[in-house]
Amino acid sequence: MISSNTYKKASLSAAIALSLFVSACGSDNDNKTATPEPVEPPVVPTPVNYEYMVKVVNLTTAQPMSPVAVVLHNEGKLWEIGMPASTALENLAESGDNSAVLSETMVLSGQSGASPLPPGMSETITVSIEDTMPSSISIATMLVNTNDAFTGVTAKDISNLAVNESISLLTSSYDSGTEKNSELMATIPGPAAGGEGYNEMRDDVDYVAMHPGVVTKDDGLAQSVLTQDHRFDNPTLSITITRVE
């Protein structure tokens, strides 16, 4: 273990030194028109692998969660309070389909959970990337017996996470603001309703905020297909991020 770590550190410093050298050459070239100085062919550094194990636990009573999206990135956020949801997030929050989130341009590396995550169940999702140390991780999943509720974390800083260290989080639930919380059977895709998932029409406030919770027919929303079982409180998801490489 120790020798392997030392080796990785050494090759990482080599990679940093190399990049400094290259950028120094670049700035020289801006000032001179002369041919670049010959560069010794560098020893190709062994690729450095950054790997994270993400354990998620669904803490709700009766809200299955859509396959959990885990993405590594350096820039951007999956969502921001007060801003309209991206189309990718709208898709995830209304239908549980995480494919658009996983292919967002900011994503350096992404991984989906194997299947929907039932209440009370846990899953470990491994995500990795070669050579680029990611500064942030984002995680998102839909509470599928809702119109557009999701939970997770956006742009969590992992730049200081050392190998074998972990971060634990309990996350609250958000509302993508893209679909009214009508709780009508036709509008909820989860097993409680079997209704529609994504619809490009935005008929709600069109900004992301914390979710107010579901009302349900048992608590005064006569048109709701949901029952008292589907209510939830925060937090809804437990997340443990461990850097393994």
Binding site: K180, E183, H211, P212, V215, D219, G220, L221, D233, N234
Partner: peptide
Amino acid sequence: RGNLGDDDLTGGTSDVDNTVHRWLNPVAS
């Protein structure tokens, strides 16, 4: 304990809308 609200904007017991004016903690960061 949160607003209760109701689904009747012209009657019922409450004047607040149960799909709009409820909240879960935390409410501010």
